[in-house]
Design a protein around this nucleic acid. Structure first.
Lengths: 120, 120
DNA sequence: ACCCTGTTTCGACATCTGTCAACCTAGCCA
DNA sequence: TGGCTAGGTTGACAGATGTCGAAACAGGGT
């Protein structure tokens, strides 16, 4: 790994991807990425997301009982996550299985990678 | 700092915070974090955030002209970011200066740190 | 004291969002 | 074929959100 940096040089500077804070997003970029954050901006969807992300894949029949919400409501939230590109789903027999889309997830994480100079 | 880890030990495991995908969030955690994502879920706020995060601090008078929106509307969005705990502001003389709150930012980034097993 | 400029708050409005009940569709099994 | 079960879709409705204009507030300069 060789993470040894001279004192005064910040390790974040060498981290992987172009962070949100590297430069101002233009309007188009913002329009593209905002829906992903928005999709995670509801507690129910955030929990759904974390349940899906915690395992390779998961059946809707295991998601629904974790909430005190109707089936259609869960289905609605899953659709939002799907349309934001955060998860993928496919039907296998009777059940529908959801899994995370790692690219999208990674993209968001990279955006939030804060560069040194913005830190106190 | 002392980031040296024995070979074979995953650095993610010792990184600062528990990633979203490590385990399902419980309802309380989700309720706490979701507002931050929600705040970033609007294109205008996302651009504001990236403008603020790109520099040590920035004056509202430099933010407003970047959008074709009224002053009050920008002020409203800044308030949402403030109340989500993502930015801090203080008045210095005539102008108000905004800066990012690195802790909050870092927390979100850590949440999106995806563990290896969820990746294809 | 006054006014001027920058910023936030208030009030109003149209639109979007979360939720449910009711209905529809896909696959399984007899 | 028919019926059963798991999920998704539709329609409707209350409540939240984005936007603006007008008014209020804060400092600085005259």
């Amino acid at each position: 790994m060789s993470k040894q940096a001279p004192p005064g040089v910040d390790l974040h500077a060498v981290a992987c991807c172009p962070p949100l804070a590297a430069r101002p997003l233009d309007a188009d970029e913002a329009e593209t990425v905002a829906p992903m954050f928005k999709a995670l901006g509801d507690p129910v969807r955030l929990r759904l997301m974390s349940m899906i992300a915690s395992v390779p894949e998961i059946c809707v029949c295991d998601l629904t009982p974790a909430f005190e919400l109707s089936g259609p409501t869960i289905s609605h939230h899953l659709r939002v996550l799907r349309e934001a590109g955060l998860v993928d789903a496919d039907r296998r027999g009777t059940w529908v299985w959801y899994r995370v889309r790692p690219e999208a997830f990674r993209q968001l994480g990279a955006l939030l990678d804060i560069p040194a100079r913005a830190l106190a």
